[in-house]
Simulated scan of single mutants.
Amino acid sequence: MNVSTPSASSAPSARPSGRAATALVLAGTGRTGSRLAARLTARGLTVRTAARRGADVPFDWDDPATHRPALAGADRLYLVPPVMRVDYAGQVAAFLDLAEHEGVRHVTYLSAYGIDRAAPQVALRAVELDLAARGSLSHTVLRPAWFMQNFSETFLKPMDDVITVPTGDGAEAFVDAEDIAAVAAATLADPDAHAGAAYALTGPEALTVGRAAGIIADVTGRPVTYRDIDRDEWIRHTVAAGVPAAYGAMLRTLTETVAAGLGSRPTGDVEKVTGVPPIPFTAFARRTARAWR
């Protein structure tokens, strides 16, 4: 289980004295950010969402002029790194320098399952190590498995009732973005209780993509099936569709890991943090059935 024990005694206070708790949520219109913002608001925190468009404040990783205004007054941060990229550790480090200067005292970082075993130069892991080295920030790392929402929103969504991806008979403990948001909300609402922790977030069962396709077929009444594909061919198609070539290489690694039987396996971390068992894929599929009809 990819979990480290919180160490609140060595962590700085999440909020300077006399300062109201304000959470800045990066990617605030995204799959986890939008869900997280609603949960934090329900907990009574002041929340500011940030994204290139449609959020409370504009935020663009490639436009440093948007960074300081987004951070103003925030003492805690939900950090989502740049998407569709593989070389951003320096960019995130500069932003964290600014966040420290502006008074942020806790960061909850959206990483990925198994990244603790990656080489230090891999960007996701490099950011984890950077956070661990910062003495004036406490931090919590979230390492989720593949999102269930990939089946309804991104690269696992059925096309003509077929899910095509090179994962073979390998299984993955897909996790609902609602559970990721619930864990993130707990860590940002009470940073001291989760300082120094790393949580591997999964669903309650490991499923092959073929089994997931069968569940979608059951709840929708559509003949949804899974088709394996040559990995090189699949990568060529994804790059041709606009995915950067460097990110295509990352997708190769991710699908190879699952196909080799080394995909994520269920952990108890969602329930450990929230007190509620993780959402099963069947429940997600029933809730999401309209997306496939």
Rank of each mutant, 00 (worst) to 15 (best):
N2H: 09
V3H: 08
S7Q: 08
S9G: 10
A11T: 01
P16N: 10
R19S: 06
A20L: 07
L24Q: 00
V25G: 08
R31S: 10
T32S: 15
G33A: 06
A38D: 07
R39V: 07
L40Y: 01
V47C: 14
V47P: 10
T49Q: 07
A50C: 12
A50H: 01
A51C: 11
R52C: 02
R53S: 15
G54M: 09
P58M: 04
P58Q: 03
D63C: 15
A65I: 00
A65Q: 05
R68P: 06
L71C: 11
A72C: 02
L77N: 08
P81C: 06
P82H: 00
P82I: 00
M84Q: 13
R85L: 13
A89L: 10
A89S: 15
Q91M: 13
F95T: 12
L98F: 00
E100F: 05
E102W: 00
R105E: 03
V107N: 01
V107L: 04
T108Y: 03
Y109D: 11
G114W: 03
P120I: 12
V122S: 12
L124H: 09
A126R: 02
L129D: 15
L131N: 05
G135V: 05
S136E: 09
L137C: 06
L137V: 06
H139I: 09
W146V: 08
M148A: 14
Q149C: 13
N150I: 07
F151A: 07
E153D: 13
F155G: 07
V162A: 09
V162F: 05
I163R: 02
A171M: 02
A173H: 04
V175G: 13
A177H: 04
E178Y: 06
A181W: 01
V183A: 12
T187L: 03
L188R: 10
A198K: 00
A200I: 01
A200G: 13
A212Q: 03
G214F: 01
G214K: 05
A217Y: 09
R227F: 07
I229P: 11
I235F: 06
T238N: 14
V243H: 03
Y247L: 08
M250N: 11
R252I: 03
E256A: 14
V258Q: 02
V258W: 00
A260I: 03
G263P: 12
S264H: 03
P266F: 12
P266N: 12
V273L: 09
T274D: 03
V276F: 00
P278G: 09
P280R: 07
P280K: 09
A283D: 10
R287N: 15
R287A: 15
